[in-house]
Design a protein around this nucleic acid. Structure first.
Length: 115
DNA sequence: ACTTTGACTATAA
DNA sequence: GTTATAGCCAAAG
Protein backbone atom coordinates (compact mmCIF):
# COMPACT_ATOMS: atom_id res chain seq x y z
CA UNK A 1 0.00 0.00 0.00
CA UNK A 2 1.77 3.13 -1.10
CA UNK A 3 -0.79 5.55 0.31
CA UNK A 4 -0.53 8.01 -2.53
CA UNK A 5 -2.21 10.76 -0.55
CA UNK A 6 -5.73 10.27 -1.80
CA UNK A 7 -6.13 7.42 0.63
CA UNK A 8 -8.92 7.76 3.12
CA UNK A 9 -7.73 4.88 5.23
CA UNK A 10 -7.39 5.34 8.93
CA UNK A 11 -3.69 4.66 8.68
CA UNK A 12 -3.14 7.24 5.97
CA UNK A 13 -5.02 9.82 7.96
CA UNK A 14 -2.69 9.20 10.87
CA UNK A 15 0.35 9.40 8.64
CA UNK A 16 -0.69 12.77 7.30
CA UNK A 17 -1.20 14.26 10.72
CA UNK A 18 2.06 12.86 12.05
CA UNK A 19 3.92 14.30 9.07
CA UNK A 20 2.45 17.67 9.97
CA UNK A 21 4.21 17.64 13.32
CA UNK A 22 6.83 20.42 13.15
CA UNK A 23 10.46 19.62 13.84
CA UNK A 24 11.35 19.87 17.48
CA UNK A 25 7.76 19.19 18.49
CA UNK A 26 5.99 16.10 19.73
CA UNK A 27 2.41 14.90 19.76
CA UNK A 28 0.40 12.20 21.42
CA UNK A 29 -1.63 9.30 20.10
CA UNK A 30 -4.73 10.56 21.83
CA UNK A 31 -4.40 14.05 20.36
CA UNK A 32 -3.99 12.66 16.86
CA UNK A 33 -6.80 10.19 17.26
CA UNK A 34 -9.05 12.88 18.64
CA UNK A 35 -8.21 15.15 15.72
CA UNK A 36 -9.20 12.37 13.37
CA UNK A 37 -12.49 12.02 15.17
CA UNK A 38 -11.57 8.68 16.66
CA UNK A 39 -10.54 9.89 20.08
CA UNK A 40 -10.96 6.44 21.54
CA UNK A 41 -8.83 4.79 18.90
CA UNK A 42 -5.55 6.04 20.28
CA UNK A 43 -4.22 2.50 20.11
CA UNK A 44 -4.94 2.34 16.41
CA UNK A 45 -2.72 5.37 15.90
CA UNK A 46 0.15 3.41 17.34
CA UNK A 47 -0.77 0.48 15.18
CA UNK A 48 -0.73 2.68 12.13
CA UNK A 49 2.75 3.73 13.14
CA UNK A 50 3.71 0.10 13.13
CA UNK A 51 2.72 -0.01 9.48
CA UNK A 52 4.29 3.38 8.84
CA UNK A 53 7.33 1.58 7.50
CA UNK A 54 5.23 0.78 4.42
CA UNK A 55 3.99 4.32 4.13
CA UNK A 56 5.55 6.98 1.98
CA UNK A 57 6.77 9.57 2.64
CA UNK A 58 8.24 8.17 5.86
CA UNK A 59 6.42 9.12 9.02
CA UNK A 60 8.35 10.83 11.85
CA UNK A 61 7.06 8.39 14.43
CA UNK A 62 9.77 9.51 16.80
CA UNK A 63 7.73 12.69 17.28
CA UNK A 64 4.77 10.71 18.52
CA UNK A 65 4.78 9.76 22.16
CA UNK A 66 2.19 8.76 24.69
CA UNK A 67 0.18 11.15 26.79
CA UNK A 68 2.81 10.99 29.50
CA UNK A 69 5.51 12.17 27.13
CA UNK A 70 7.25 8.83 27.42
CA UNK A 71 8.83 7.22 24.36
CA UNK A 72 6.54 4.25 24.41
CA UNK A 73 7.43 3.30 20.86
CA UNK A 74 11.16 3.58 21.19
CA UNK A 75 11.38 -0.19 21.39
CA UNK A 76 9.96 -0.45 17.89
CA UNK A 77 12.78 1.51 16.35
CA UNK A 78 15.74 -0.25 14.85
CA UNK A 79 18.27 0.21 17.59
CA UNK A 80 17.88 1.04 21.24
CA UNK A 81 17.76 4.77 21.75
CA UNK A 82 17.20 5.42 18.06
CA UNK A 83 13.99 7.28 18.77
CA UNK A 84 15.60 9.33 21.49
CA UNK A 85 18.56 10.10 19.26
CA UNK A 86 16.25 11.42 16.54
CA UNK A 87 14.38 13.59 18.99
CA UNK A 88 17.54 15.05 20.44
CA UNK A 89 18.76 15.69 16.92
CA UNK A 90 15.70 17.87 16.43
CA UNK A 91 16.27 19.77 19.63
CA UNK A 92 13.93 17.73 21.82
CA UNK A 93 15.65 16.78 25.03
CA UNK A 94 14.87 13.31 26.25
CA UNK A 95 15.80 11.72 29.53
CA UNK A 96 14.87 8.39 31.01
CA UNK A 97 12.78 7.65 27.89
CA UNK A 98 10.72 10.73 28.64
CA UNK A 99 10.45 14.05 26.80
CA UNK A 100 11.61 16.98 28.88
CA UNK A 101 9.28 19.97 28.97
CA UNK A 102 6.78 17.74 27.25
CA UNK A 103 3.88 20.09 27.82
CA UNK A 104 5.91 22.82 26.20
CA UNK A 105 6.92 20.59 23.29
CA UNK A 106 3.44 19.19 22.88
CA UNK A 107 1.88 19.92 19.51
CA UNK A 108 -1.84 19.38 19.32
CA UNK A 109 -3.26 19.28 15.75
CA UNK A 110 -6.72 19.94 17.11
CA UNK A 111 -5.44 23.26 18.42
CA UNK A 112 -2.64 24.14 16.02
CA UNK A 113 -4.53 23.20 12.88
CA UNK A 114 -7.92 24.35 14.06
CA UNK A 115 -7.08 27.97 13.44
C1' DA B 1 -15.98 -15.78 11.45
C1' DC B 2 -13.76 -15.79 16.00
C1' DT B 3 -9.97 -14.78 19.04
C1' DT B 4 -5.93 -12.22 20.31
C1' DT B 5 -3.33 -8.28 20.38
C1' DG B 6 -1.53 -3.74 20.70
C1' DA B 7 3.74 2.34 19.93
C1' DC B 8 -3.22 4.16 24.60
C1' DT B 9 -6.05 6.55 27.98
C1' DA B 10 -8.97 7.25 31.85
C1' DT B 11 -10.48 5.85 36.16
C1' DA B 12 -10.10 3.38 40.69
C1' DA B 13 -7.61 1.91 44.64
C1' DG C 1 2.18 10.53 44.50
C1' DT C 2 2.11 5.56 42.13
C1' DT C 3 0.16 1.15 40.67
C1' DA C 4 -3.68 -1.82 39.01
C1' DT C 5 -7.69 -2.53 36.18
C1' DA C 6 -11.09 -1.71 32.59
C1' DG C 7 -12.62 0.27 28.29
C1' DC C 8 -11.63 1.11 23.65
C1' DC C 9 -11.27 0.34 18.32
C1' DA C 10 -9.29 -1.69 14.46
C1' DA C 11 -6.26 -5.02 12.27
C1' DA C 12 -3.65 -9.50 12.15
C1' DG C 13 -3.51 -14.54 13.17
Amino acid sequence: MQTLGTENDFFSAVYEVVRLIPTGRVSTYGAIARYLGTARSSRMVGWAMNNSHDCFPPVPAHRVVNRNGMLSGKAHFGSSGEMQRLLEAEGVKVENDKVLEFQQRFWDPASELAL
